[in-house]
């Protein structure tokens, strides 16, 4: 009888294990995760006329503007046999995915304090659902890229450099790593902003700055030659090169357009960085979720 009465289902206590992750519980709430995804996707463009068309408009127009400004006016070369528009579209599609994941998860606690203050469910469901919804959005935008890709590669001679090959199989891995980085960083930021709001100001303009340091609208090779010429300080060259987002975007352009900096050692580097970021984010997030409602 005594042993039976000690058989508690769970305990609510202030003690925290270092990595207190209850995967069983998260699995139990998987329906909730999908319902949140559904909510995010379905309600995004409700009562708009263009509806899901907005998914296409945003990356297309940004690419057109980038092509005009950076390639036509500033004369940045994207390499022979690569249409600048396609080059930019590739970078922007991937960058948008990362940005949406980061921005979407970085205010998890503040945006949801109403729900979080009333009911318990594993809080990590929220940022995961944001990343999954963005994955769907990314899928749609990737479709745009694929359409233009097919058009340029098979129906014109402008994209002579691009040659689709088996390397395309790396795509899911790249998408996964990008999501992991966005999620990890987002969780770290959202945890820290619960008590000190400073970081939330950093996010909005920090993301903008980060885009310029992520080789979205220029090839990494260009930076390397500029550094070699001495027209760009070495430190910024290093920053751009070892920025994991640069690596992923370059890798994506490598497997689709055949230009870019891609090697296995860099892939391993990105895998390690994103896993570390994700784990650190998860630990901080878990620590915060227990008491954030008192400080937010």
């Amino acid at each position: 009888m005594i042993t039976k009465s000690e058989n508690w289902l769970y305990t609510i206590s202030p003690k925290q294990k270092f990595l207190d992750l209850n995967f069983k519980e998260i699995w139990r709430y998987k329906d909730l995760m999908f319902l949140f995804v559904k909510r995010n996707v379905v309600t995004l463009y409700k009562q708009t006329i263009l509806g899901p068309l907005w998914y296409f408009i945003q990356p297309l127009f940004t690419s057109v503007i980038f092509t005009l400004v950076f390639n036509n006016i500033a004369n940045i070369s994207t390499g022979d046999g690569i249409p600048s528009f396609l080059f930019n579209l590739a970078g922007i599609t991937f960058w948008n995915y990362f940005k949406e994941c980061l921005v979407g998860t970085s205010d998890t606690f503040r945006k949801n304090q109403n729900i979080f203050g009333k009911v318990y469910f594993p809080r990590v469901i929220m940022p995961i659902s944001v990343v999954v919804s963005n994955l769907i959005k990314f899928g749609i935008q990737l479709l745009v890229f694929v359409c233009f890709y097919i058009y340029f590669v098979f129906f014109t001679t402008k994209a002579s450099h691009a040659s689709p090959s088996l390397e395309l199989l790396f795509l899911p891995l790249l998408v996964f790593l990008m999501g992991l980085i966005g999620l990890g960083l987002g969780m770290i930021i959202s945890s820290m902003t619960t008590k000190y709001r400073d970081l939330s100001y950093l996010v909005t303009f920090g993301v903008q700055l980060l885009m310029y340091a992520s080789a979205v609208m220029y090839p990494l090779d260009l930076i390397k030659t500029k550094v070699a010429e001495g027209s760009i300080p070495k430190i910024s060259g290093v920053l751009i090169e070892y920025n994991p987002i640069t690596t992923i975007i370059e890798a994506f352009r490598f497997i689709t357009l055949g230009v870019g900096d891609f090697s296995f050692s860099k892939l391993i580097y990105v895998i390690v960085v994103s896993l570390v970021l994700f784990l650190v984010g998860l630990i901080i997030f878990n620590k915060t979720e227990k008491s954030f409602i008192d400080t937010v």
Binding site: L9, I12, S291
Partner: peptide, 25 residues
């Protein structure tokens, strides 16, 4: 709030044998 696991206690613990659902709102 502590019972519904919205926030955690500073000290002490609550042990339960059943699943708790809370209707605070």
């Amino acid at each position: 709030k502590i019972l519904s696991r919205v926030t955690s206690p500073t000290t002490g613990e609550i042990k339960t044998k059943g699943r708790i659902a809370s209707l605070l709102e």
